[in-house]
Nucleic acid binder design. Structure first.
Length: 485
RNA sequence: GGCCUAUUGGAGAAGUGGCUUAACUCACAUGCCUUUCACGCAUGCAUUCAUGGGUUCGAAUCCCGUAUAGGUCACCA
């Protein structure tokens, strides 16, 4: 049996999309599972929408996620190169005209406006689905010349046969039936000489010896068209598998314009999601492992576990809270060294940390939050809660602060804290105990006023950490500010 | 509208005719732990598998119809 070769073929029209990442992941997993190759091909035939640098950025994001291509524009295998479609335009043209010569395709001179009019007419005449009316199928030499004289350039349409069975066995959905009569003569080469998606994919997949095509369900209805092209050339098509699409909370396909859900991998990176967590989350979206008691899978384990049978057939909703949970799991799993390294860029963005703390202190402080973070960028909020104190207290907080006992605690602590040599867990806690004993107060009654006065909040991390972070002077200052004796 | 696909709790889902009084995970709720929150631990959360028929001793699981949702019908990919 031939070596398994699968591909991920993005168009360079923007950043790596979450749906694209999942597509790439499943293809990658399947390739590695079968000891095959994972190929990255750039489908840049829509020259209007191409964005310079988009392919590099997508590859970079993919690698950040841990997905490396065996072949790509930057890592070509000469046998299959080039890996960008616009670099082999002549080839597509050659194949397209080969079909024209064999009478299986024809030139079409219809303009955009004429096509639109045709469509409208058909629809208003009760036609259910638009099909090209083959206006240009039997053009005479003279008619053609007339169009050419008008300055028109032809596109090429495939002459789709009537009533041919275009069914196939889908790797994830089983047998899917299509009939060629439902498909109109579609364009394979645009009038600008660039192939359309459906044509270029077939040529490329054939030339690159792609054995399996795993793609989104939105391509299901493209498959019969591609099958028809394979048939005309007499090539053996690859095996197709159509995966479920990812939908938003409204059940609609994630579109790039959807603002409710963050769409791009780079944005997740900026928010402090870990690549392992994203990959793991995507892995479980639309796929269920056989042994499904575990939810945490490394990339290596994903390769071992993956199989086509586990792919689901109904759409999966993108659930951010589960992603967050997954991310927090991976943060907890990291050893301290790796954690500090990962969180460092986020700490750099917090100005007051830079000013007041050494790098070592800063790193130690961040460790305090390790168990609490969902995403690494949350660290900013945690520090802000401590450093950016406002002057307002709500009613509940005021009630606690106005107790005589509370005032006593605050005053006593503000004074005694000055006598401590070095602030740390032990020294602070023993001071707490000392004062508790003297005043005969403990538990919430003792700690709450301190917490409220220091952070203006009733919840947060342990107090000795807060005091360590604030330092003696700031702690005292906050404790006695506004106190009336 | 045509074609295609899907339909198990708020979300991801297991389940392929009797071990299911429907796993597991997230979310949510409650309790324990803790100076508070979080973490962790424990418990609860679908008498029911879109719906109506049928097959069967027995159906979420098989068959037929209906409904709903999604995908696609481009010189976009």
């Amino acid at each position: 049996m031939n070596k398994v070769r699968v591909r991920y073929a993005p168009s360079p029209t923007g950043y790596l999309h979450i749906g694209g990442a999942r597509s790439a992941l499943f293809n990658y997993l399947y390739a590695k599972k079968c000891n095959g190759d994972f190929i990255l091909r750039i489908e840049d035939t829509d020259i209007e929408r191409n964005i310079p640098g988009a392919d590099e950025s997508q590859i970079k994001d993919l690698e950040w996620l841990g997905i490396y291509a065996d072949e790509s524009p930057y890592k070509p295998n000469e046998k299959y190169a080039p890996y960008r479609q616009t670099e082999k335009l002549d080839l597509y043209k050659k194949y397209a005209y080969e079909l024209v010569e064999r009478g299986l395709a024809y030139e079409c001179y219809c303009s955009e406006e004429e096509l639109a009019e045709m469509k409208e007419n058909q629809l208003s005449n009760g036609v259910k689905s638009f099909k090209y009316d083959r206006h240009c199928l039997h053009l005479t030499k003279e008619e053609k010349q007339k169009y050419i004289d008008e300055g028109r350039k032809p596109s090429i349409r495939l002459k789709v046969e009537d009533n041919a069975d275009l069914s196939f066995d889908d790797l994830v959905r089983g047998h899917v039936k299509f009939n060629s009569s439902d498909i109109g003569d579609f364009v394979i080469l645009k009038s600008n000489g660039i192939p359309t998606y459906n044509f270029a994919v077939v040529i490329d997949d054939h030339i690159m010896e792609i054995t399996h095509v795993l793609r989104g369900e939105e391509h299901l209805s493209n498959t019969p068209k591609q099958l028809e092209i394979y048939r005309y050339f007499g090539w053996e098509p690859p095996k197709f598998g159509h995966m479920t699409i990812i939908v938003n909370e409204k059940g609609k396909k994630l579109s790039k314009r959807d603002n409710n859900i963050i769409q791009f991998v780079s944005q997740y990176r900026e928010l402090g999601y870990l690549p392992e967590a994203i990959i793991n989350f995507l892995f479980l979206l639309g796929f269920t492992p056989k042994d499904n008691n575990n939810e945490i899978y490394s990339l290596k384990e994903q390769i071992e576990t993956f199989n086509l049978e586990g792919l689901s057939t109904s759409p999966s909703m993108f659930d951010v809270s589960k992603l967050k949970w997954m991310n927090s799991q991976y943060i907890k799993l990291m050893d301290n060294e790796k954690y500090i390294k990962s969180i460092s860029p986020f700490l750099d963005k917090i100005d007051y940390l830079k000013d007041k703390f050494t790098l070592t202190q800063r790193n130690e402080l961040s460790l305090i939050f390790k168990q609490e973070l969902n995403t690494l960028s949350d660290i900013k909020k945690e520090f802000d809660d401590i450093f950016i104190a406002n002057d307002e207290f709500n009613q509940e907080e005021n009630e606690i602060l106005n107790k005589d006992s509370s005032k006593l605690i605050l005053k006593t602590l503000a004074n005694r804290i000055q006598n401590i040599e070095t602030l740390n867990k032990e020294s602070i806690n023993s001071l707490f105990k000392e004062i508790q004993k003297e005043l005969g107060l403990k538990g919430k009654d003792f700690y709450m006023p301190i917490r409220i006065k220091l952070t203006h909040k009733m919840h947060g991390i342990e107090l000795y950490n807060i005091i360590t972070i604030l330092g003696k002077e700031e702690t005292s200052k906050r404790l006695i500010s506004g106190l009336i004796y």
